[in-house]
Amino acid sequence: MTELAATQHPAHKSRPAPGAFVARTVTGITGALERNVFSVENARLPGVLQQTDPRVKLVSILILLAATSLARHLLVVIAVYLASLLLARLSRLHLPTFARGVWLGIPLLGAVVAIPSLFLLPGHTLIATPEFGGMRLAVTDSGVSSAAMLLARVGTSVSLGALLILTTRWADLLKALQVLHVPAVFIVVLGITYRYLFLLLHTTNNMFLSRTSRTVGQTSGFEQRRWIGALTGTLVGKSLKMSDDVYQAMLSRGFAGEIRTFASFRARDQDRLFLGLAAVFAAGILLVDRSMM
């Protein structure tokens, strides 16, 4: 996951210049996205989720997401998380990569949101700062448990979403949304966004690589920042033009406002079984949740 364009670029082997750091980070991130989010490799593995009807998959994931947000007990949310890991395993995803991807990146955001609740909820004091102007900050037990709950929810939801996206071809996902009566306009926009985000990433990546290859020696931080400013401007312009171009390319191939895709979904018994299991699991777990004190 981290063998990226940047490390393939010979310049980085011979010269680990500090100036290359920004470029390396950007090509790293865009390269990773290109290779992972936009790749269909995972979606092609012969796993359980890959072989499930996309509509069924979408609905099941939504059910599990609902269970995650309705649950009041940490253990219950953890159970849903474990279920998502089991699904990832059954879908032949590489578990360490899957778990790391979810817990390293996104919950940073969750943590930022969760930290204040450590302090703000009333409860038994676990640790407290010394008094400070008549006030003190105290970490309370309910603060801790609600922060833990928040993190668990975010992590679990992200895992579930990642399962859906990783195991479904983008075109099928769009089609599934269509079947579920999500408005066509929304789906078209999503469809274009997908391709166009990809092109944009690709462009960014290339611009960085071409700059790196044109740069001899080190560049100052100032130069780097100035260059990034210029790059941002260029990218905004490019992105506008690109979304326009992709739309034209779709029009020229007969697109007339409603995306038609190939997959004709035919729910089979195994799909019904999957949906049933997801619903029973969610219902069961919520029952347990409500009976716990």
Binding site: R169, I192, R195, Y196, V246, Q248, S252, R253, F262
Partner: peptide, 24 residues
């Protein structure tokens, strides 16, 4: 199109070639 990257907007070549016929 002059720029092939614009023309190819689907996940795979097969999907891309199928896009036109499907819209029809």
């Amino acid at each position: 199109f002059q720029d092939a990257d614009i023309q190819l907007f689907s996940p795979t070549v097969w999907d891309d070639v199928a896009f036109g016929p499907l819209q029809m």
